[in-house]
Design a protein around this nucleic acid. Sequence first.
DNA 1: TGTAGAGTTCAACGTGTGTTGAATTAGCGG
DNA 2: CCGCTAATTCAACACACGTTGAACTCTACA
Lengths: 229, 229
Amino acid sequence: MSRAAKARGGRNGAGRPPGRPAGDSGTRAAIGEAARAQFADHGYRGATIRGIAAAAGVDPALVHHYYGSKEALFAAAMRLPVLPSEVMTAALTSPAGFPGTGTRLVAAALSLWESDALKDTFLGLLKSAVTSEHAAAMLRDFVTDSILGTMVKVTGLADRVSPAEAGYRAAMVATQMLGLAMTRLVLRLPPVAAASVEELAATVGPSVERYLSGEIELPAAVAGSQRRT
Amino acid sequence: MSRAAKARGGRNGAGRPPGRPAGDSGTRAAIGEAARAQFADHGYRGATIRGIAAAAGVDPALVHHYYGSKEALFAAAMRLPVLPSEVMTAALTSPAGFPGTGTRLVAAALSLWESDALKDTFLGLLKSAVTSEHAAAMLRDFVTDSILGTMVKVTGLADRVSPAEAGYRAAMVATQMLGLAMTRLVLRLPPVAAASVEELAATVGPSVERYLSGEIELPAAVAGSQRRT
DNA sequence: TGTAGAGTTCAACGTGTGTTGAATTAGCGG
DNA sequence: CCGCTAATTCAACACACGTTGAACTCTACA
């Protein structure tokens, strides 16, 4: 038998003569999208190049052709399509005052990482962080810079307290927010998964607010670094 | 060269004639311990049978001989050596009242899952939950039954509010606690990782207490299930 | 028309994985 | 002293992985 007469697959899929069907099909982008989805589903280790290629309807070798290596693909796929800090800032500054900074913060974060733009990226980061030190560093940076940094600025925390205290308070916020993400997106604890963004924001918000500006006991190490108001 | 003259490894390690050196060496237990440590370090997917065997100083085939399969080994390794509910109950009931239920709860949980008895088990569960649905179910059950169930009973939550509300409040607690575990043990965010158990308990405790008995807004679905006091 | 290059496929390599089966030895009950 | 059984090792299988290199076909431009 010759090698002619093959069935057409999803994108290219099953046997089709090599060659160039058209100038710049969206293959590269398709691979990126598939990668994001796979990383979100299975984490860095669990996602496979072959699986990603299959999901994109493409030969595994193409993935390497475009991205070079799995790690590079991960880095590229996790590069954020929008700047979270901007989204957060916008969500936080527009309705000034009401209904409480903490509540607005939780609502903003929640809908941010459940938005189509960031969903897979964030979940991928979250799921990969536990296995890959590389991903953990990415998530840590993401949390520290984009989220916490913005938050500290937007809420004016930086002006009111010492840097050490701001860092500690922000970390406490991270504690609550990451837990929310974990139970809602990964573990899917029924009460948390079922609630709406607004409901969660309403009940969790005040706790966050307490970390931001409420009275909390500081560890000796951070309390000593500067007198506070 | 013949195959004689080999160096002695950790347990048995490198070449040593097969056979039975002594009745019931603690090999089976050693494998279990090594497994727990490896699962805690790398998660379910990241940990390998060969790695576990090496850590236990044992031939990989022995692992299967004793446990049958990787999944069975995981299940066996994650079986809790102590009942968390008992530990929690003890920690919560002895110094009644002071310094606040939430604070004591956080302190108890924190030192529970950082105890030698549970450390690896808990971390293993946490790291595997994001990749393996099996492990996620285990962690969910662990959180739901042992921690939240106990908590609801000990704090008297069950007597004061409807089951639906108790479930929601407990889930919010889980949100905060899991986030604490995540940032401290997995992500190791500096401020959280550096603080002592008491310090964390002091700052996080009141938030937890708020979820337990404070005034919070309930989702419509749970508020409607029964009139509350 | 020719040639450079992009898009794509295929086949294979080397490595690491979970798992299996046979072989070997030591202790223990008869 | 003889088997039986438990403890252990070794060698191998089948598979999946990331990665590589060569081939092929089309488009674009000179």
